[in-house]
Design a protein around this nucleic acid. Structure first.
Length: 286
DNA sequence: CTTCTTGTTACTGA
DNA sequence: ATCAGTAACAAGAA
């Protein structure tokens, strides 16, 4: 499940390889993953090139010529894999399974560049999408989502303001992209654990101290996860098919029924909060 | 066979 | 107006 650190890791990889390369061909194998007109999609991208690549929440935004933008959301199982011309090896590398045997049955779109390199969009569950937007529609998207948690604008005061007058459980608050953009199920659980806060707590019950802890936890967890190139739990891999390493650092996510690594007393519980599997330590989260 | 999984939207009911 | 809960989307794992 790509969240902010995974999406950013993918973007960092893409920027090293696909910028300014002429797109010679766009093959759409599964039309429904294109939002809007498929013809327009291909027409805009063909012979165009990626001038820049940025992130907004969990969205990847490719800047194209003439103030057009390619928006990609990976949702849960989307992958972008970059393959150089001579990298596709018959038979594939056995330890990487399908990833270097592309395209495979989950490949829904292929960009081919002038230098023979290719970018594959794979998506097991087909929930992700690609879309062409102009500047105004890009602005609409930008306005729709909450603050970037790693930006300078995201201050403690800002978080306090967001929480004020809200009566909702803190997990649902953090998952809502309209408040803070980029957190998903893994990093909300990890952030709340780090801040010693139960996911079921109501936002208006949090003390000043707890909000400060949460603020710092979100920033620290996201930065560390970025350093570790994200978390691979099931499906996530970067543009080279490499797994993220933050799984070593997870303290609660996926650790149900195991002993808490922090207090060494509690047994990590898994419950449903805001419709999502939620992990916490009943001993040290209050 | 059933149940669960995740990101997001849409809907219902309180 | 707000919030909780759930279904939907699809495919695979357990």
């Amino acid at each position: 499940m790509p969240e902010l650190p995974e999406v950013q890791t993918i973007i960092n990889g893409l920027k090293k390889h696909v910028l300014k390369k002429k797109i010679k061909q766009v093959r759409v194998l599964l039309p429904k993953i294109i939002r809007g007109s498929k013809n327009k999609f291909i027409q805009v991208l063909k012979n165009n090139n990626f001038i820049d690549i940025n992130r907004r929440g969990k969205f990847i935004i490719f800047s194209l010529k003439n103030k057009q933008f390619l928006i990609i959301h990976l949702r849960m199982t989307g992958q972008l894999i970059y393959i150089q011309q001579n990298e596709i090896i018959a038979g594939g590398h056995s330890n990487q399974r399908n990833n270097f045997n592309l395209p495979h049955k989950q490949t829904h779109l292929i960009f081919s560049f002038q230098d023979q390199s290719q970018l594959f969009y794979n998506d097991q569950r087909q929930f992700g999408f690609l879309e062409i937007r102009g500047q105004k529609e890009l602005k609409d998207l930008d306005n729709k989502w909450g603050i970037e948690p790693l930006s300078k604008k995201f201050t403690l005061i800002y978080l306090k303001k967001l929480l004020k007058n809200k009566r909702i459980n803190i997990k649902a608050f953090l998952l809502n992209q309209k408040h803070i953009a980029g957190l998903g199920n893994i990093y909300t659980d990890e952030s709340l654990f780090k801040a010693y806060i139960l996911p079921t707590r109501q936002t208006d019950s949090l003390t000043e101290k707890e909000i400060k802890n949460l603020y710092q936890a979100i920033k620290q967890i996201l930065k560390l996860a970025l350093q570790y190139r994200g978390t691979t739990f099931n499906n996530y891999i970067d543009v080279h098919g490499r797994r993220g390493n933050f799984i070593q650092k997870l303290k609660v996510y996926g650790r149900e029924n195991k002993k808490c690594l922090r207090c060494r007393q509690g047994i990590i519980k898994k419950i449903k909060v805001a419709g999502r599997g939620t992990h916490y330590c009943p001993q040290c989260q209050k």
